[in-house]
Simulated scan of single mutants.
Amino acid sequence: MKLANPVPGRPCWVELSTSDVHAARAFYATLLGWRSETDPRPEAGGYTMARIGEDAVAAFSPLYRQEQRAAWTVSFATADADASADAVRSAGGTVLMGPMDVFDLGRFVVAADPAGAVFSVWQARAFPGAERFGEQGTLGWAELRTPDPKGALAFYPAVLGWTVNATGHFTHWGVGGTDFGGMKEHTGEPTRTPPHWLPYFTVADTEATAATALASGGTPLAPPRQVPGGPWVATLRDPQGADFGIRTP
C-alpha cells in the first residue's frame, strides 16, 4: 500500500548496514527490483537510498565501526523521538545513539530492547520514511527474534504502544488492532546470531525469489514453506552476512 504519512508505532523504514554497499545494491536490485542512488554530500557518509519507481523503500549505509556486523535495522515511527528515548530507558532498554537530527529530514534514536535486539525510531520532518509497505519489493512484515518473549511483551507496548495478538505459538504485533509483525522465540547461538529484528520483503513467488538469491550469492537459512493458513516465507542471508526474510501473502 502507498503510505502518505507515517503511523506512530508502525514500521516506517528499513536500512542495511553493510561492508560492501556497491555489492549490496546489485544483490537487492536483482532480488527486489530496487534502483538506488548515493547521497553525494560528504556529511551523508555514503548513505544510499533504494527506490521502486520514484518511491523510497529502503536504504544502505557502510559499516562505521570495525566490530560492526552487516545487519538490517527496522525503524518505527514516533511523534516524539526524545519521548521515545525516555520510554526506552524507563522500560529497561538502552539508547545506543541519539536523539539526533538528520539534516531537515527528521530526528531519530537507535535503541536496544532489554534482550539486546536493536531497532530505531524515526520522528519524520521532511522525510516521512518508506512510501510503500506490503507491495512487491517492499517491507511487508517485521519479526522480532528474541530469547525473552515475556520481556518483549512488556517492553514494546510500553515504548511504542503496540497491540498484542497472541495465537497458539506465535505473537503478532499491531497498531490499532492492525498487525504489522510478530515475535518468535530465538534459541540460536547468541554469539553467532544475537537477538534481532528480521525484516521480511514482499515478493510474488517465494520459491523463485529464494532461488534467485542463492544464484546471486545468498545463503539459505530456512527454506520456503507456507505458514498454516498464511503466507509463504523463507529466510536468507545476503552475500555480506545480513539476514532477511521474504514472504508471499
Rank of each mutant, 00 (worst) to 15 (best):
residue 95 V to I: 12
residue 99 P to F: 07
residue 99 P to A: 13
residue 100 M to Q: 13
residue 100 M to C: 05
residue 101 D to L: 07
residue 102 V to K: 01
residue 102 V to I: 15
residue 102 V to F: 06
residue 102 V to E: 05
residue 103 F to E: 12
residue 104 D to A: 13
residue 105 L to F: 09
residue 105 L to I: 00
residue 107 R to L: 05
residue 108 F to P: 00
residue 108 F to S: 12
residue 110 V to K: 08
residue 110 V to R: 12
residue 113 D to R: 02
residue 114 P to W: 09
residue 115 A to S: 15
residue 115 A to K: 10
residue 117 A to V: 11
residue 120 S to G: 15
residue 120 S to T: 10
residue 121 V to W: 01
residue 121 V to E: 04
residue 122 W to P: 02
residue 124 A to E: 02
residue 124 A to L: 08
residue 125 R to Q: 11
residue 126 A to S: 13
residue 126 A to P: 00
residue 127 F to S: 06
residue 128 P to K: 10
residue 129 G to H: 04
residue 131 E to I: 00
residue 132 R to S: 03
residue 132 R to C: 02
residue 133 F to T: 05
residue 133 F to L: 08
residue 134 G to M: 04
residue 135 E to N: 03
residue 137 G to N: 02
residue 137 G to E: 01
residue 138 T to I: 04
residue 139 L to T: 02
residue 140 G to R: 00
residue 142 A to P: 01
residue 143 E to I: 06
residue 143 E to R: 03
residue 144 L to G: 00
residue 146 T to F: 10
residue 147 P to L: 12
residue 148 D to H: 08
residue 148 D to F: 05
residue 149 P to N: 13
residue 150 K to E: 15
residue 151 G to K: 11
residue 151 G to S: 13
residue 151 G to R: 11
residue 152 A to T: 14
residue 153 L to A: 14
residue 153 L to R: 15
residue 154 A to N: 13
residue 155 F to E: 11
residue 157 P to T: 10
residue 158 A to C: 04
residue 159 V to Y: 07
residue 160 L to K: 07
residue 162 W to A: 10
residue 162 W to T: 08
residue 163 T to S: 15
residue 163 T to G: 14
residue 164 V to R: 04
residue 167 T to D: 14
residue 168 G to M: 07
residue 170 F to E: 02
residue 170 F to Y: 15
residue 171 T to L: 07
residue 173 W to A: 14
residue 173 W to T: 06
residue 173 W to L: 14
residue 174 G to E: 04
residue 175 V to L: 06
residue 179 D to K: 00
residue 180 F to K: 00
residue 181 G to K: 00
residue 183 M to K: 04
residue 183 M to F: 08
residue 183 M to V: 09
residue 183 M to C: 10
residue 184 K to W: 09
residue 185 E to P: 13
residue 186 H to V: 09
residue 187 T to K: 15
residue 188 G to W: 09
residue 189 E to G: 01
residue 190 P to C: 11
residue 192 R to C: 02
residue 193 T to D: 14
residue 194 P to E: 13
residue 195 P to Y: 04
residue 195 P to N: 06
residue 195 P to I: 03
residue 196 H to V: 07
residue 196 H to N: 12
residue 196 H to D: 03
residue 196 H to W: 02
residue 197 W to A: 07
residue 199 P to Q: 09
residue 199 P to W: 05
residue 200 Y to T: 05
residue 201 F to N: 03
residue 202 T to C: 03
residue 203 V to K: 01
residue 203 V to S: 00
